[in-house]
Write a protein that binds this DNA or RNA. Structure first.
Lengths: 227, 227
DNA sequence: TTGTTATCTCGATAAACATCGAACTGTTTT
DNA sequence: AAAACAGTTCGATGTTTATCGAGATAACAA
């Protein structure tokens, strides 16, 4: 007998504020301990442990033990894409606290979308690439030009050496900007390179990333029409 | 103050078997009454009415009244895409009844995916288009060739007269076949044309569609390598 | 050793909510 | 008019489940 997809097995897990908050933190792509996650989400360690185990059963997250700590991280690229998809069709609700408003501003400026760069910085980056004719964007389809190929090679990213799995360039709808930023294997590689060069740094207990001085120089130079 | 997306407002609605079953029926694209829907999902009319009203609040469905009946239909293309996305990452569960197995076979053969054709027939159709070089499919991106443009024109579909909203061709991952079928405005137009020519017909209380004699002739001719 | 920390297991509890019966409002049919 | 039908509202009920306290088990630190 064939097998049907159990859709509500997925949606029931996603229908809980705590679990969504945990996933949102894990969308940063980092490894985080149960205690860290529980603290950030403001639930007890037991509850966090319970949620993480349930999500592990569906292979959304995976864990490894080191000493007395258990480190969790996001394990499903598909789920990351689904979460971004959900964010874009969700109704809006007012922000009620100053603290949350502050956190939102940081997320809006720049954040990681699992493996690539999102937020105003990410959207602006894609704009620059288009304007400089490094990529073309027609009919919601992205393509890399020869000039763009050179641009990334200069950054140390050889597109021939990237994993062949999935599209090289992929537009990803940004839920804060309501416009596209760059995903795909090239988007992931670029974000990784930014982290390696310390142009971008993670902020604690958040998906937000901050721009270093060097990073600011790089992105500013892109915006400069003379270069 | 800015506004945050309320993700669980979406997932909580999707975390219920009855509502998912209702949405699945509405994915056919047809207008259906509360009574019809309730009967097909095996819940009482009150319960169906309750669910449909909640989904209407998020603008997932809309309704209009005709006499004593209230007709509901799917109102969000985004939601339709989300549902297909969910189907693809859901864990599988065994089918436990003969009846459900029968229904599954019908769905697998051919069904509507809101506005376009899915199932084995849909996947096979895209294969044919590729093989005859009517469309190209590289790096998960579809493009229409001049020959393809002619092919659809012969069917009565002028791509210059299609709505400019969204991409013309879009690959949509098929959850029964695990391969792509054709979506986008052209995919929608083609499915509509199939219904108009009566090549395809809806089955009652299901998203499945069946092939008429004329329809079989058309799709068989596509598979014929001589033509 | 002794104390501290991180995680997990096991109940108990409290809140959320899908469901349906009963009753009510219209609409269509006879 | 009367009966049948489609849809809705309201209240009650029963199930599901997120949560935490208490206690157990390790790993680490002093």
């Amino acid at each position: 007998m064939p097998e049907l997809p159990d859709l509500t097995a997925v949606t029931k897990l996603l229908a809980d504020e705590s679990r969504v908050a945990l996933l949102s933190l894990l969308l940063s792509g980092r490894f985080q301990t149960v205690h860290e996650l529980a603290h950030a989400v403001k639930i007890t360690d037991q509850t966090a442990s319970y949620h993480l185990k349930r999500m592990q059963a569906l292979e959304w997250v995976s864990s490894y033990k080191q000493g007395r700590s258990v480190y969790y991280h996001l394990a499903s690229e598909q789920l990351a894409a689904l979460l971004e998809n959900l964010l874009n069709i969700s109704p809006r609700k007012k922000i009620n606290s100053f603290k949350k408003n502050q956190a939102f501003k940081e997320l809006k400026a720049a954040r990681s979308c699992y493996s690539h760069l999102a937020g105003a910085l990410g959207v602006n980056f894609l704009d620059c690439l288009c304007q400089k004719n490094f990529v073309t964007f027609q009919h919601e389809q992205l393509a890399l030009t020869p000039a763009g190929q050179l641009f990334f090679k200069d950054l140390g990213i050889d597109i021939n050496k990237l994993p062949s799995k999935g599209p090289l360039l992929k537009p990803c709808l940004d839920w804060t900007e309501r416009r596209f930023h760059l995903a795909g294997t090239l988007g992931s590689a670029f974000f990784k390179e930014c982290l390696r060069r310390q142009w971008l740094r993670y902020t604690p207990a958040s998906r937000a990333v901050t721009l270093s001085w060097d990073g600011k120089l790089f992105f500013d130079s892109l915006n400069n029409p003379l270069v």
